[in-house]
Design a protein around this nucleic acid. Structure first.
Length: 511
RNA sequence: GGCCCCAUCGUCUAGUCUGGCCUAGGACGCCAGGUUUUCAUCCUGGUAACACGGGUUCAAAUCCCGUUGGGGUCACCA
């Protein structure tokens, strides 16, 4: 009897994410991990991370490392798994193989006759499938060796182990986002479960591990839905409890197909490098295929998402990964950061671009001194905070910070026509710039901050009749750009000497 | 092709289970206006959707059937 209760009485909630380390952490994988995590945290359950590296050819430790780092960065924390104490043996399938966990069950099935050796060649299998395609039948292997149970060592060596599928009629299960799902059991064929007695394959390893680890709910991407009947049939053969299933809608690219490389960045690491904040990605991913009860609420911290999370509000249709919206959300998170945090997070981008050099790297970041290669000056972290604060409202990704502040740290160049505000004459412009030179010169260094500068310059600007007449050329002289932060902020950051220098340069351009 | 899943603005979605409050709401994007020396932020307004066809009903985005469309999956990968 299928159980339609999401939570049975006294049930211990145990969920798991089981990535295979064959590539960097995909956002789809991260989203599945996230939903498992949210489910576990919401119901006070246990979230397990299990590494499915049975495919030794394709698995690599570096990918496992990438996956673990990515999940940690996103603050999706597991309770059991790599780096944590486990109560049910190791959490890496390669290690579980060594412990003979799967072998035990494979032998049992072989003995009972629910599994058998099949030595059909790949060519033979291929041919069988082609024939079935032609006859418009379900492609599957119906093995003629299923009752032979050979003991011939030579044959066994060339064989794989298959499940002897004797299911007739439908295999049904209740999916908590899709409802009743039914597959024709006969169409499953005699599917493979292990390459040899010590080499389990995916569907079999999953079933054994989920059982041994007492997994209560299987939450995974919809692309696994067709594996579900195979796993159920195995669970029945092994007399295991059948977990509850929750299949998540897929994350799609802009063309509505499963998100993949050709759509652009797909790995968590790439988004991290581009300067997306983990909190923003976490928030964004949670909203891909899920919604809180108050639809209006989109910007939500982790705790609130956990509190709000319920599986009945998971979508059924796939969700397009909209980078535009992620960027907007990231901008919101950037604006909520303290300048100190933002500056710290931005630092690596400046160093990568050689815009700053830390002179005393061993010191705490807030005590650090920087050298600015472009200007040859030395500054400290307080000053760096000023640089970053200036652009905090303007950037959506951390990596934009370097491009947008480069003019502060390097010599600038621009067309002199840019200095002209509306239809003012060159003579007027020259006058204003030399006036500015005098005004700035008179401001003592110790009073050189944006508040004071504003207080002194604004009244003078008003006197020109239209303050843009003074403020625009000043700003262009300082930034060399038609769009930039305001002149007072810029002057504070680059200092009196450089400010005067830039105003003088502007004046020279006009002669 | 077999099997399975899905279907509200360009995108994420609310509303669907428990038909009427929906002349379909919000957010991103886009457009316009305001604020500002510029850009950004911010504020205001606008743009835009129930795939189609049949039923059922006094009443359907909501229930039923069909069609179309999209997607996933069919390994000695996971």
């Amino acid at each position: 009897m299928k159980n339609k209760e999401l939570l049975s009485k006294n049930e211990t909630i145990r969920v798991r994410m089981a990535p295979s380390p064959t590539g960097s952490l995909h956002v789809g994988t991260a989203r599945a991990a996230l939903f498992n995590y949210l489910f576990a945290k919401h119901y006070d359950g246990t979230f397990i991370l299990r590494i499915e590296d049975t495919d030794t050819e394709r698995s690599d430790e570096k990918w496992e490392k990438d996956i673990i780092e990515g999940l940690s960065w996103l603050q999706i924390e597991w309770d059991e798994g790599p780096g944590k104490k486990g109560t049910y043996g190791p959490y890496r399938q390669s290690e579980r193989i060594k412990e003979g966990i799967y072998t035990k069950y494979i032998e049992k099935m072989l003995e009972e006759g629910s599994a058998f050796y099949c030595w059909h060649t790949k060519e033979e299998l291929q041919k069988e499938r082609e024939n079935q395609q032609e006859k418009k039948e379900a492609p599957r292997h119906l093995c003629g060796y299923r009752d032979l149970h050979t003991t011939d060592e030579e044959k066994i060596k060339q064989s794989i182990i298959r499940f002897k599928n004797e299911t007739t009629g439908p295999v049904e299960f209740y999916d908590f986002v899709r409802g009743e799902v039914s597959f024709d059991g006969e169409n499953l064929g005699d599917f493979s479960i292990a390459k040899s007695i010590n080499e389990p394959l995916y569907n079999f390893a999953v079933v054994v591990d989920d059982y041994e680890m007492k997994v209560s709910h299987v939450i995974r991407g919809e692309d696994h839905i067709s594996n579900t009947p195979r796993q159920i049939v195995l669970q029945k053969a092994l007399k295991f409890d059948i977990p509850k299933f929750i299949h998540l809608p897929l994350i799609l690219g802009t063309d509505k197909s499963k998100l993949s490389k050709r759509h652009g960045a797909t790995s968590v690491g790439e988004y991290k490098d581009m300067g997306y904040l983990s909190e923003a990605l976490f928030n964004f991913l949670s909203l891909l295929g899920w919604r809180p009860s108050e639809d209006e609420k989109e910007l939500m911290p982790k705790d609130e998402i956990i509190k709000e999370f319920t599986v009945e509000r998971i979508q059924q249709a796939g969700a397009v990964f909209d980078v535009e919206k992620l960027s907007w959300m990231n901008g919101q998170y950037i604006r909520n950061l303290s300048t100190e945090e933002l500056a710290t997070k931005c630092m690596p981008y400046f160093i990568d671009k050689n815009l700053i050099e830390i002179k005393n790297p061993k010191e705490n970041i807030s005590d650090a001194k920087f050298k600015i290669p472009g200007l040859g000056t030395e500054r400290d972290f307080e000053w760096f905070k000023g640089v970053v604060a200036m652009e905090q409202e303007r950037i959506k990704k951390l990596d934009e910070i370097t491009g947008v502040t480069e003019f502060l740290l390097k010599d600038i160049d621009y067309e002199k026509s840019l200095l002209v505000w509306k239809d003012m004459s060159v003579e007027e412009l020259k006058k204003i710039l030399s006036d500015l030179n005098v005004i700035l010169e008179e401001i003592p260094k110790e009073n050189w901050n944006k508040e004071n500068l504003r207080e002194i310059i604004m009244p003078k600007a008003e006197l020109t009749g239209s303050r843009g007449k003074m403020l625009w050329p000043l700003r262009v002289a300082l930034s060399g750009k038609k769009a930039s932060p305001g002149p007072f902020e810029i002057m504070e950051v680059i200092g009196k000497e450089e400010s005067l220098n830039r105003v003088t340069q502007a004046h020279k351009k006009l002669v």
